[in-house]
């Protein structure tokens, strides 16, 4: 028995290292990848149908411009820059935290318990355990639309604009990611939160796919300024194009617009942390 006793009584290390944590997350992603490969055919089908969805979103914009040469004072090429920025940013968020929506299921079934008893923070565990790899091809498409949009527009390139072009999709990704996490957090209070969250995430994405000049007053004020969606693609696109804002914001606003992601991330983090404390598990 003495031998057995030594087997069990392990070292209790003070805690994991950062490199160890990264390896742990990598292992979780690897686990997800191999799980998917056990259903090869359906994985391939999902991969393709997911691209289809993004292609449709962008096609809508083309359809709109077949009816009219300019929308809200912007040409097709200019609008596509906003659409592309939105598509790229959204896909970045969707590919990482998109499945956070599944939190509802984890909360309802109490499966979240098992994540809470592991030595890693819950949010990255959820994200990496369930990384929606089937959305991988969407990323390629989103990046392509953005790249093409930058090429077809006559962007007056400066160092500042190069930096903005690189940062804007990340800002958009962070912003949408924050919306995903924020709306998913509702599930901690309200398990049947259903599609309410999607109203904000997908509604927000559709809103930012067009120049905000097309929207009516109070609706535009609410979404663009109060909720911050106007700074996700519209403002950065104006700054990239070197166009003045018809709605009157100064030119520098577009260059700092990606910073809107910071308060969004702060609010989402707060909601998540409060939510976790509010988690009540399920019976048994």
């Amino acid at each position: 028995m003495a031998e057995t006793g030594e087997t069990w009584a392990g070292e209790t290390w003070a805690g994991g290292t950062r490199a160890g944590a990264i390896r742990a997350y990598a292992a979780l992603v690897g686990g997800k990848w191999r799980s998917m490969l056990s259903y090869r055919a359906s994985f391939a089908a999902e991969l393709l149908s997911n691209v289809g969805a993004t292609v449709l979103d962008v096609t809508t914009v083309f359809v709109l411009f077949r009816a009219t040469a300019t929308v809200g004072g912007f040409t097709l090429a200019e609008a596509i820059l906003m659409t592309g920025l939105t598509a790229f940013g959204f896909v970045l968020a969707d590919l990482t935290v998109g499945n956070i929506d599944d939190l509802k299921r984890y909360v309802r079934t109490g499966q979240l318990d098992t994540m809470l008893t592991r030595p890693l923070p819950v949010l990255p565990q959820l994200v990496f355990t369930d990384l929606p790899l089937r959305k991988l091809l969407r990323l390629v498409f989103g990046a392509a639309v953005y790249g093409v949009a930058l090429a077809v527009n006559d962007v007056p390139w400066t160092a500042g604009r190069v930096l903005l072009a690189a940062v804007a999709p990340l800002g958009a990704g962070l912003f949408f990611g924050a919306i995903f996490v924020l709306t998913a957090s509702f599930a901690f209070w309200w398990v049947e939160s259903g599609e309410i969250g999607n109203g904000f995430t997908y509604g927000g994405r559709d809103f930012t796919s067009y120049p905000i000049t097309v929207y009516a007053h109070w609706f535009r004020d609410l979404f663009a300024y109060a909720l911050g969606f106007g700074f996700v693609s519209y403002q950065p696109a104006l700054a990239l194009l070197g166009r003045a804002d018809p709605l009157g914001l100064p030119a520098w606003a577009g260059f700092v617009a990606p910073l809107v992601a910071l308060p969004a991330v702060a609010v989402a983090t707060l909601a998540w942390r409060t939510g976790i404390r509010h988690y009540r598990s399920t019976g048994s």
């Binding site: 994991g16 944590a21 390896r23 191999r34 799980s35 109490g110 098992t114 048994s284």
Partner: peptide, 26 residues
């Protein structure tokens, strides 16, 4: 927790153990 599995549903049992080794950094 008898009612909630901490194993990876679609992977061989051996794989779950391997993944947990990384999660706990053993």
């Amino acid at each position: 927790f008898g009612q909630r599995s901490q194993l990876w549903w679609d992977l061989p049992l051996r794989e779950s153990f391997r993944l947990l080794r990384h999660v706990y950094q053993v």
